[in-house]
C-alpha cells in the first residue's frame, strides 16, 4: 500500500529521516519519537521533544515540541499566535477553531504532529495586508461579539460555514454555527454577520 501513500505522508517521512539523522548526532536532547516504520521499535524516550514543521498561514514553522502538544498549544505557546483561544480544551466550545486544509476543526483535539504537512489557517491569517476579511468586517458591523474571547473561533467557523454552503438561510446558519459557544450570547448578531458576509465570500 505504501506506493499509494499520499504526498503528505512521503513528505513527512523524508523530513522524519532528516530530523532523525541530525537529531541523534547534533542535538542529544532531541529525539525523534516518530519512527519511519511502525514496526521499528521506538528507541527514544517518548517524553523527549520531537521536531515538527507546521505550515501556518502560508509559512512553514519548525518547532521542537512535546509529542503531546496540540495544534492549539503549538500555536499559542510556541508560535505566539494567541488568536486561537482555549475555552475548554475538549472540543466542547469551539473557541480554538482553525481551518486545516480549508476545513474547520477544533485545534484543541488535533495533535500538532498529526497536522504536519497540512495547511493551518488561523484568525491571524485571515486578513490580507491591512484589509479585513469580509467576515471580520461583518462581525464588526453587526456587533457579533462582546467579550471577544470566542470571536476568532466564531469567525473561522463562520468562514467555513459559508464555504460549506451552510449559510443559505438563518436556520442553517444557526445550526451550523452551533459548535461555537458564545457565553455573552451574541448569537443573533453572529447570524446577521454570517448572512451579510456570505454573498461576498461566495463571490470572491
Amino acid at each position: 500500500m505504501s506506493d499509494k501513500s499520499s504526498s503528505r505522508t512521503s513528505t513527512f517521512d523524508r523530513r522524519a529521516f532528516m530530523a532523525g539523522a541530525a537529531g541523534s548526532a547534533l542535538v542529544p536532547m532531541t529525539a525523534r519519537a516518530v519512527a519511519q516504520d511502525a514496526n521499528e521499535p521506538v528507541a527514544q524516550d517518548p517524553s523527549l521533544p520531537v521536531e515538527v514543521t507546521l505550515r501556518v498561514n502560508g509559512k512553514d514553522k519548525r518547532l521542537r515540541i512535546d509529542a503531546r502538544t496540540t495544534v492549539l498549544d503549538a500555536l499559542r505557546e510556541h508560535l505566539k499566535l494567541t488568536g486561537s483561544k482555549k475555552g475548554c480544551d475538549h472540543g466542547q466550545c469551539g473557541a480554538c477553531t482553525v481551518l486545516i486544509d480549508d476545513r474547520r476543526v477544533v485545534s484543541c483535539l488535533t495533535l500538532a504532529l498529526a497536522a504536519e504537512g497540512q495547511e493551518i489557517t488561523t484568525i491571524e491569517g485571515l486578513a490580507t495586508d491591512d484589509r479585513l476579511h469580509p467576515m471580520q468586517q461583518a462581525f464588526i458591523d453587526n456587533d457579533a461579539f462582546q467579550c471577544g474571547y470566542c470571536t476568532p473561533g466564531q469567525i473561522m467557523s463562520a468562514v467555513a460555514c459559508v464555504k460549506e454552503g451552510h449559510a443559505g438561510n438563518e436556520a442553517d446558519i444557526r445550526e451550523y454555527m452551533s459548535g461555537n459557544i458564545c457565553r455573552c450570547a451574541a448569537y443573533p448578531n453572529i447570524v446577521a454577520a454570517v448572512k451579510q458576509a456570505a454573498p461576498e465570500i461566495m463571490k470572491g
Partner: peptide, 9 residues
Amino acid sequence: DATAKVTGR
C-alpha cells in the same frame, strides 16, 4: 476594540 477582537490581536 472591534478590530482588535476580530483579528485575534
